[in-house]
């Protein structure tokens, strides 16, 4: 008896595998809730509750925005074989760039576009550095981008505790509030800053076209699937990687600008700016299977998990770690289901 790859799994098998694993995850979660003294049904209801009202939908939307931008960029980067773990840091760089424009350049109608430009640019520089280190010195980008996250964390702390500290913040670690010209419009009285949302959707569509409808995209896909073949074909691997890295860093930078210009309206302590979007987006990108377009679906899905977990911890006064448990179990069930559905059991050796 052994496992074998199933090249063309039937639809009902895929369905069965996913149902099985999701049921398993829900069962485990339910057990955990029971142990904690909470009715599992009530907990599941809460988990999905953000879908049921406008407040909840706004929360899902707010979290979807950065996940969309970063996720689309990472889907591209991963596909090309650039394992960018540093979106968190690139997002912070974007926030720094945006804050610089907002605080130190004369405000006007050009402020917001300039913020996105500089923020995205700094994000791109930050990821481009890792790509350059890899192409030039062979430094592993998983490691360099991870370390860069820490560097920019301290850069932001330095800025808000030192030179950029606001005059009106009573000594706390904030810059002053951005002028109105540097604040993004929001949808009604929610925190959904819609221009960034549009940018995210455009990014997903644009990268999908770039990847599947242009010669550049063709080269990218070859490089990602078979670096050796790419070399035989005479493709310039270094440049292709650098370009993909720059693009994903740029989009993460845009997400950073969106967070500071749409929600915080100032630069502040780094752990408060990013909330781990850079890491969650890795999962968004992975679930999208290297297709930037699919991020339009996977980013809201992760957004729902985050918002649902929040509803859970708020309604039941549960520890915040419940979000991690829910996310971890659901993810494991998804990848388990995927793996299972692509295999079949053979009853002979």
């Amino acid at each position: 008896m052994r496992w074998e790859l199933d090249p063309s799994p039937s639809l009902w098998k895929v369905f069965l595998a996913y149902s099985l694993f999701v049921a398993l995850a829900l069962l485990l979660l339910g057990l955990l809730f029971l142990l904690y003294g909470v009715s599992p049904l009530k907990a599941y209801g809460l988990l999905l509750s953000p879908l049921g009202d406008s407040l909840g939908l706004a929360e899902v939307g707010r979290r979807t925005i950065p996940l969309l931008l970063i996720g689309a960029g990472l889907a591209l980067a991963f596909r090309v074989g650039f394992f960018n773990i540093g979106a968190e840091g690139q997002l912070l760089m974007g926030a720094v760039g945006g804050a610089y424009v907002a605080l130190f350049l004369p405000p006007g109608p050009w402020t917001l576009p300039l913020m996105f430009l500089l923020g995205g640019g700094l994000g791109a520089v930050w990821s481009g550095l890792a790509a350059w280190l890899r192409v030039r010195f062979g430094a592993n980008e998983i490691l360099t981008t991870l370390m860069q996250n820490y560097l920019v964390y301290y850069l932001v702390v330095y800025l808000v505790a030192g030179p950029w500290k606001g005059q009106m913040v009573f000594g706390f670690l904030y810059t002053d509030r951005f002028p109105p010209e540097a604040q993004l419009p929001r949808l009604g009285d929610t925190l959904v800053h819609w221009p960034t949302l549009l940018l995210g959707i455009a990014a997903a569509l644009g990268l999908q076209l770039l990847l599947f409808r242009t010669p550049l995209g063709f080269e990218w896909r070859i490089l990602g699937e078979n670096p050796q073949a790419a070399r035989y074909l005479g493709l310039k691997g270094g440049r292709l990687i650098l370009l993909a890295a720059l693009l994903s860093g740029f989009l993460a930078g845009l997400a950073g600008v969106g967070e500071v210009a749409g929600i915080h309206l100032r630069l502040l302590e780094p752990a408060q700016i990013s909330l781990g979007y850079g890491f969650t987006a890795i999962l968004v990108a992975w679930l999208a299977r290297g297709r930037p377009l699919w991020v339009l679906f996977t980013a809201p899905l992760l957004g729902l998990i985050l918002a649902g977990g929040d509803a859970l911890k708020l309604a039941l006064s549960m520890p915040f770690r419940v979000v991690d448990v829910v996310a971890g179990l659901l993810l494991l069930s998804l990848i388990g289901a995927e793996a299972l559905s692509q295999r079949r059991l053979i009853w002979r050796r």
Binding site: I282, W286, R321, V322, D324, V325, I335
Partner: peptide
């Protein structure tokens, strides 16, 4: 299954479960 994602999920699960 995909080892990278399985690992990340395990990291979240472990942190979460230990906290609870």
């Amino acid at each position: 299954a995909n080892q990278f994602v399985a690992g990340l999920a395990l990291a979240a699960l472990g942190l979460g479960a230990s906290g609870l």
